[in-house]
């Protein structure tokens, strides 16, 4: 994608976010993403960004899609995560059902893939019997969805219906909800045999998408801190005049800019970018919160959510340790780091 096109796309999305998300970002954290915003996201083609146009999606190219993720994450990581879950995770695993994808792209339904139990090595506890699902999913992001993809006995099933929710502590992405699920006879359809390889593939293919969210969060939180450091004074001088403040912020900002360049470079390694971007999101949010002091600790300033979300993002789709194991295997060309 040409630089000029990318710039224009960024500006358009930023304008959309300023008009539709920025002012309600706190409300999203506390009460979820309102349906009228979901409709607007669908109207912009974001919810079906990577869904084939035949199925009601906008069929965006990878770079454009990642710009959508990055820029929306700046205002609301929860909104960005919604777009990500539908396009990077649910749709590739549920590509055979055009009508469901149309519902997702239009914002009339939501679909979530309950993969955290599988990714964290837990036993499958949802069992299928005569086309019905019974049992519990321990961890589910976006539990208010209409469609649930659940691995069981090596296969992947699509479940419909409203399972009972067991609320969990919600560290990050509070706008989406997070809970355990109890299925007691929901309709279940097997959509994939030997699904583990496919799930792993989908997660691996999403590395740069996750990096886009992380870079959006890192960039936003550092920009907020830089802005604050210009106007906040202590001992009679703006914070930015103090070396440790300016140096640390400048250092991180330059690293984020470099990571962004790598993200949109076709030759960069997706997993490396993911690891780097998540680390930057964590470091940036911690520094930003610190620079904002007591105000940063309050939700009103819109900084603390990045601190929570960055940590959540760092464990949702593979922890740093798991990613490094995969990276080591690639770098060595053989299994490494297993002891």
């Amino acid at each position: 994608m040409e630089q000029e096109e990318m710039r224009m796309l960024r500006e358009n999305i930023d304008e959309f976010c300023t008009r539709n998300i920025a002012d309600i970002a706190l409300k999203i954290e506390n009460s979820g993403i309102p349906q009228d915003l979901v409709a607007k996201l669908a109207g912009q083609g974001f919810l079906g960004a990577r869904i084939n146009p035949e199925n009601g999606g906008s069929g965006l190219d990878e770079d454009s899609y990642r710009i959508v993720l990055e820029r929306t994450a700046r205002s609301s990581p929860s909104v960005s995560m919604l777009i990500f879950l539908e396009n990077s995770i649910f749709s590739p695993l549920y590509s055979h059902d055009g009508s469901a994808l149309r519902e997702i792209a239009s914002g009339t339904s939501r679909g979530t893939a309950c993969l955290f139990d599988y990714l964290s090595g837990q036993e499958d506890s949802v069992k299928m019997k005569s086309g019905k699902a019974y049992g519990t999913v321990k961890y589910c992001l976006m539990p208010d969805s209409e469609y649930f993809l659940v691995p069981s006995d090596g296969s992947l099933y699509a479940l419909k219906g409203k399972p009972r929710q067991n609320p969990l502590p919600r560290l990050g992405f509070r706008g989406l909800g997070y809970s355990g699920l109890e299925f007691d006879g929901s309709d279940a359809e097997k959509i994939l045999e030997n699904a583990h390889a496919m799930i792993d593939e989908v997660i691996a293919a999403a590395s740069k998408d996750i990096a886009a969210i992380a870079i959006g969060m890192a960039g936003a939180t550092i920009d907020k801190a830089m802005e604050y450091s210009r106007v906040r004074t202590t001992f009679g001088r703006p914070l930015k005049d103090y070396g440790p403040v300016a140096f640390n912020l400048s250092d991180l900002k330059s690293q984020i800019d470099e990571a962004r360049n790598l993200l949109y470079s076709a030759s960069s390694d997706p997993l490396s970018i993911k690891i780097m971007a998540i680390e930057l999101a964590r470091k940036s949010s911690r520094l930003s919160l610190q620079i904002h002091g007591g105000y940063g600790y309050l939700e009103d300033f819109g900084v603390e959510k990045f601190y929570r979300d960055a940590m959540s993002l760092s464990v949702f789709f593979g922890t740093r340790g798991e990613d490094l194991k995969t990276l080591s295997k690639k770098m060595y060309g053989e299994t490494a780091g297993i002891i």
Binding site: F116, Y139, Y178, R282, M311, S312, S314, V315, R320
Partner: peptide, 13 residues
Amino acid sequence: EKALEITGIEGIS
């Protein structure tokens, strides 16, 4: 931070 890193999804939940 380390505690959440090494316990992953179980820790943050």
